[in-house]
Design a protein around this nucleic acid. Structure first.
Lengths: 203, 203
DNA sequence: TTAATTTTGTACCGATGAGTAAATATATAG
DNA sequence: CTATATATTTACTCATCGGTACAAAATTAA
């Protein structure tokens, strides 16, 4: 039962690049959301037709989930890599400015697909909505753990409540996604990032 | 040309309360978003059938816009009333805690329909998306004007950039809407509000 | 060459989307 | 009572929705 991503050795070879197609699907979901993205939108952008899409990715829901996975693992992703920074301040600085840069980048849709992919949505999107909420919570928990580690190492004041601080930072980051869809420029988002950083508790 | 909301004196009287029906429509749009809310969802919640909806409200798009208008004028709206507070600090305090209370209130859908009603959406929703963006920007501009007035009155430090501060506060408020759809409790949102307020520049 | 296997293109499925035509019901004006 | 005006109900329109059946095409294994 080798259900991996490796292509089978026998049979007609796939005529398109799954990764490229998934990237295109991600852009559609990012721009239009799960409910707003139709299969026609998707197949057109991906350059394939429906049977190919279903054979390769399952269905619309699974395609969305795979697109989200790609989103968080792409080179321009900013959240998890920022956690590797050596100090809490640098972690947050990288995170906030990475968000400002990425979310207003005009080479792809504005904002963050994890925030806006299925926020208010139909019942058909309930599964993907739950998956996105879980991703947002996981991110917040990972940030909290990183801040807690910093606090224990004396890198943050001992009286800081890292749960609240992580939730606050998640709130600002998620708000920046909305600002980006409002049309905020990278500079405007960076001003928000800087103001947030100015208030960040230092050792 | 009296195209007001006053009912005509002749003809069969309307059998439903337009305001009540609009309130129900608002709840549906709030929960499901513009794309995710079907006319069946709407007519079922409103307790009327489609021709009545179209006769009374025009079409889905106009119904949405009227629902948004109702949303901002309802008694539990917190944004514009907060601007009436006598000091910048009190304005922001009322705004943040009003948001924390309202957005996690379980008597209606979580979050804010102006934020999440049409964030990522289909082309059919382009008009309402633009309308929501305009509302968010208007709110931010009104807050900026209030902060600027406070600054001129010496109620805020003279070196405060009210444009950036208003954008930052708008970002936090919009992020709180996302947190609310994540399932954050009123208490959790109030902790974010308090932390934001702790950093607010005082005279 | 033949068999087995997988992808592709076309053409379709039933369900649902937003929106409406037309008949009926209920009111007021004269 | 009659005429007019508006609302309601039912049944419908056409387009699109997500998803699939089927046959042709393209590959490897034997």
């Amino acid at each position: 039962m080798s259900t991996g991503t490796c292509p089978p050795s026998v049979g007609r070879p796939r005529a398109f690049d799954m990764e490229k197609a998934l990237e295109k699907a991600l852009e559609v979901f990012w721009k239009k959301g799960y409910d707003g993205a139709s299969l026609s939108d998707l197949t057109e952008a991906m350059g394939i037709n429906k049977p190919s899409l279903y054979a390769a990715f399952g269905n619309k829901e699974q395609l969305f989930l795979k697109a989200i996975e790609l989103y968080e693992n792409r080179p321009c992703a900013f959240f998890y890599p920022a956690l590797q920074q050596p100090t809490a301040y640098l972690v947050v600085e990288h995170m906030l400015f990475g968000a400002a840069t990425s979310m207003a980048d005009t080479s792809h849709p504005h904002g963050c697909v994890v925030v806006q992919g299925a926020l208010s949505c139909s019942e058909a999107a309930a599964t993907v909505k739950a998956a996105l909420i879980a991703r947002r919570r996981d991110g917040e928990l990972a940030l909290r753990a990183r801040l807690e580690q910093a606090r224990e190492q004396g890198d943050l004041p001992a009286d800081v409540d890292t749960t609240i601080l992580a939730r606050y930072l998640g709130t600002v980051l998620q708000g920046m996604a909305i600002q980006a869809t409002n049309g905020a420029t990278p500079e405007e988002l960076k001003q928000v990032a800087q103001l947030t950083l100015d208030n960040f508790p230092r050792r």
